[in-house]
Design a protein around this nucleic acid. Sequence first.
DNA 1: TGGCTGATGCCCT
DNA 2: GGGCATCAGCCAA
Length: 191
Amino acid sequence: MPRSFYARDTVTVATDLLGCTLDAGDCAGRIVEVEAYLGQGDLAAHSARGITPRTRVIFGPPGHAYVYFIYGMYECLNLVAEPDNVPGCVLIRAIEPLRGQDLMAARRGPALKQPRDIANGPGKLTLAMGITRKLHNGVDVTRAGSPLTVREPETAVSPSAICTATRIGIRQSAGLPLRFFLRGNQFVSRF
DNA sequence: TGGCTGATGCCCT
DNA sequence: GGGCATCAGCCAA
């Protein structure tokens, strides 16, 4: 997807990312669940307290990856939205595996029981796809040859197929309807 | 089936 | 030093 795709308001980018193919080179999947983190009035967003060494990329140009470390052991992937200097990003929470399933399952390790659990959560997704701060934070996902790219949906997503809910695992601004997922998809983390 | 908890490290106050 | 955009295993029902 071109940079203009990401240079829009965060909620629009979030819903339009549903159905897109996320490609990490040796594996790929269909985005089925996302959350929007806004620049203003959203205390759950890392950008809520301004620019810090960690949040710098969220304030940078759109179409870049923001990867952060959480709970001492997990990485989470976001895609930066909004024009340059305006904060806003989309957390990628779950994918439906399309390519490299065996590799992803191997990366997840022996704890993995069912195929649907390969990447149905932000920490599982980055582990399965080999996404890390060291390799992926700040990379331009619109650049050909980037270690992380996004393509338009293989099958179109109709607006009626998108469910809206509150975000998972946050305390502040918890009531905002900023989580979006594909209706009935078995690879979503929570229905 | 659902709730609780330990693991574990970084960021920011 | 407190809190955190998580996960898996354990326990009680």
